[in-house]
Amino acid sequence: MADVTTRRDSPEAVAAEKPGRAPSPAPAPPDRARELRSLLARADVKLSPYLYIAPFFVLFALVGLFPLAYTAYVSVHDWHLIGGQGEMVGLQNYADVVQQPKFLTALRNTFSIFLLSAVPQLLAALVIAAVLDANLRAKTFWRMGVLLPYVVAPVAVSLIFSKLFADQSGMVNTLLGFVGVDPVRWHADALASHVAIATMVNFRWTGYNTLILLAAMQAIPRDLYEAAIIDGANRVRTFFSVTVPMLRPTMIFVIITMTIGGLQIFDEPRLYDQQGDGGADRQWLTMTMYLYELGWGAQKSFGRASAVAWILFLLIVAIGLVNFAITRRIASDGSSSGGKRR
C-alpha cells in the first residue's frame, strides 16, 4: 500500500535538494567600485525580493483593488447601464436592494445551492480520494478520469444537464418513472431546481477536490498507518482515525475555496433554462445572477448591481473570517497546499 516513490518527494527532501536562494556575493572588488558594489549588493538583498513579488501586487492592484474601489464608488451613485453616471445617492442603492424581496430569495437560493453542492461534494471527494489512494492498477488513468468533468466547459455541462432535467420531457424524470417515482418538477419547484443545479456543480468539481485531497493523503506518513495496523485497526478505523484528522488543514482549504466559489455561482443557474433569469418566480436566482439582473436586466442600474457586489463581497469576507478562526483553532501547523479554485 505504501507508495515508495512518494518518499522521494516529501517536503524535506525537496527542500534539501534546492540550491541556496541568496545570490552569491560579488568577488572581491578593486578600490573605488567597492563601495558602490556593496551598496548594490545590500539593495539586492533588501529590495529585490519586493521587486520579485511586485508583479503580483501590481496586477492585483490593477485588476483586483481598483475594480473593488471603483465598484464602491459606483454603488453610491445613480448609474445607468447605458446612460452612465448620475447623481450621488449615498447608501440609497443598498437600501433599495435589501428591500427588494428578490434579494432574500437570491440569498436563500445561493446558500441552499451552496450547501447542496458543498456537503455531498466534500464527502464524495473524500471517499473517492481514499479509493484512489489504495494500490490500484492503472493509477494515473483513474486519477485523470476523475478530473475529466472539470475539463468540460461549464456551459456545456449546463446545456446537457438542463436537457436531462427538463420538467416534462427530461431523461431524469423518465428514469425515475421506471422505478415508480412521480416526475419531479425540476424547474417549477425551488428545492428541486437547487438539487439539479447542485448536481451540475458536483459533477464538475468533485474530481478537482478529490485530487487535492488525494495529494494531501499521500503526504501522510505511511508509518502512521503501519502503526495503526499493528495496533489492530482495520481499514475503516484507520480512515477515520488517521486519514481524516491528518487531512484537516487541507479540508479547511477546500472548504474555503468551495465557499468562495459556491457563493459566486453563476454559469450553471444562468444556463439552467432558456431565459436565464432564474425562473419565473426566481426559484434559482443566485446573488451573482441578481447582480446581473439589476445591472443588465430590466432595472439597468449599475448602482444597485454594485451595491449587491459589495454586499456579496462582505458576506464572503465574513464567512472567510469564520473559516479562518476555525482553521486557527483546529490546525496548529495551519499550512496547506493546493491551487486556487474558480
Binding site: 438542463s162 427538463a166 420538467d167 416534462q168 420531457s169 424547474h187 433554462d273 432558456q274 431565459q275 419565473a280
Partner: peptide
C-alpha cells in the same frame, strides 16, 4: 403549460 423556447416546449412538438 409550456414556456415558449424551453426544452419541454421544443420537445412537445415531437410528442
Amino acid at each position: 403549460g409550456l414556456t415558449q423556447w424551453s426544452e419541454d416546449w421544443t420537445n412537445a412538438f415531437q410528442n
